[in-house]
């Protein structure tokens, strides 16, 4: 089934998906073992996993007979890019304000 593509912030806005990511920072889980930790149906957990996968937060690897979920950097990079964007945004704006204020004073 087609999933809507969510951006990184929408992806981690969901508490279940955050919990999945938290669990994966501590240990490796198969899709089945992840599902056991949640009070929701396996298809519901699968859906979250698929969303995390599509957004680049996890990869899924077949190891032996099991499908393992593994954290992936890409999704997290997107979050970092957003922060970097605003970081330089503000730096530029604050400099612009300085120029503006100085020009104003010089005119007086």
């Amino acid at each position: 089934m087609a999933q809507p593509r969510l951006d990184a912030f929408q992806v981690i806005a969901d508490p279940s998906r955050r919990q999945i990511l938290q669990m994966l920072t501590k240990d490796s889980y198969t899709i089945n073992s992840l599902a056991e930790n949640f009070d929701m149906s396996r298809p519901a957990v699968s859906k979250h996993i698929k969303i995390l996968y599509t957004a680049g937060f996890i990869s899924i690897e077949d190891i032996g007979r099991e499908r393992h979920c593994i954290l992936k950097q890409d999704g997290f990079n997107e979050l970092q890019n957003w922060i970097d964007y605003f970081d330089s945004f503000w730096k530029n704006k604050l400099k612009k304000l300085e120029t503006l204020l100085n020009n104003k004073m010089n005119k007086k």
């Binding site: 593994i70 954290l71 605003f86």
Partner: peptide, 30 residues
Amino acid sequence: LEHSGLMKNISIYEAMNKGWKENIAKIDEL
């Protein structure tokens, strides 16, 4: 200037950076 809340869920991000290498090792093991 403080621009906060950009990463409300940063704990994941940090845990992730910390746990990254360990995880790779674990996966290798598996």
